[in-house]
Design a protein around this nucleic acid. Structure first.
Lengths: 191, 191
DNA sequence: ACCTGAACACCGTTCAAGT
DNA sequence: ACCTGAACACCGTTCAAGT
């Protein structure tokens, strides 16, 4: 009954902050938004729930940290034609959003969490659109089209509709790419 | 201490199913997704939490019923040019989605809830796209663009970003309309 | 500095009991 | 048929206590 209290001496390995982020992401991806709780994560980490609070403050802090890690790898390529760089950036963004649709949903659901990386990506897209030759007003319009469409595709993925009768998957990367090409084509004619 | 048990005789007015839906929607719109709980709704209705279960089964049932009511008024107009009818339908859909962004978020978060009305609206759009002259493959592509973009705009609204420095509201109906015009223009050239 | 248990104020939901 | 209280198994989070 009387289990040891306080910080354990040495025998037990305490997961690092990065371990926690990894396990949290895995829990969210595999079990879904509803099952993603502080207590469930603590159990998986074999740690007291309060240990997580020590590293991330609270649940929103944890979600924010997850977002920063997931989206930090979405970056504009160093070279290439502007339109092609937009395409690559959106593909990279969509790839991450699609890999972790539950994370996107959590961010959308909690106004407190607005990841810096999300803002940076939006800014990067806007700048590339200006480089393509769009006026600032048109750039604002098109960044909304591109970002909102990607987010909409993300929530559709999260909802988990499955493959259509004809075998085409509404949520595959290929499907997204094909749609993106159509949008960028319209963008070019709109420039 | 000993409050009466069981069904009250007559003196207390019990809210109807429609009252419950209305109050639920109001609670969700004003207080947000986090505050939208069965118990909070029961308190507002001055009713035992279990009374709600009697009418809607469970929380998902309630959310589903809210969705059916909110989206049932989004219908294609009886006359007009096909492209113009698509525009009107999307505007009507966006108007409802924007009026209740929290509801959209709840639907996205819970795979169990897939409102029939949402499926119907998607089908209606697809049919109109075919009427415009798109092949079934292009129609599939464009319905995704239009629906996902609208959903993305919805979650952006739910996130509650506010007006930009220049005073333009990223989430106004006018802004959505302007963007929709650009998309439908691209669609026409793509037909 | 970092981890712990206990406790608080909540949840959704089941169940048996009332009228 | 419809509404109720009590209870169960959960939540996120605060706090004081351990090392």
């Amino acid at each position: 009954m009387n289990r040891p209290r306080g910080r354990p001496s040495r025998d037990k390995a305490i997961p690092s902050r990065l371990d926690m982020l990894g396990t949290a992401l895995h829990l969210l991806d595999t079990q879904g938004v509803e099952a993603f709780t502080m207590r469930a994560l603590a159990t998986r980490l074999q740690v007291n729930p309060m240990t997580i609070y020590h590293h991330f403050g609270d649940r929103d802090g944890l979600i924010g940290a997850m977002a920063e890690q997931v989206y930090s790898c979405v970056r504009v390529s160093v070279s290439g034609e502007s339109l092609r760089r937009i395409e690559a950036l959106m593909q990279a963004y969509h790839a991450q959003v699609r890999r972790h649709p539950g994370l996107a949903l959590l961010i959308f659901s909690r106004p407190e969490v607005f990841p810096q990386q999300a803002q940076r990506i939006t800014d990067d897209i806007t700048q590339l659109l200006v480089e393509v030759g769009l006026t600032s007003e048109k750039a604002r319009l098109w960044v909304n089209i591109l970002v909102d469409f990607t987010h909409g595709a993300a929530v559709a993925t999260a909802m988990g509709e499955r493959a259509k009768p004809d075998g085409t998957d509404r949520f595959s990367d290929d499907e997204y790419d094909a749609t993106l090409v159509v949008l960028l084509d319209a963008l070019r004619q709109n420039a």
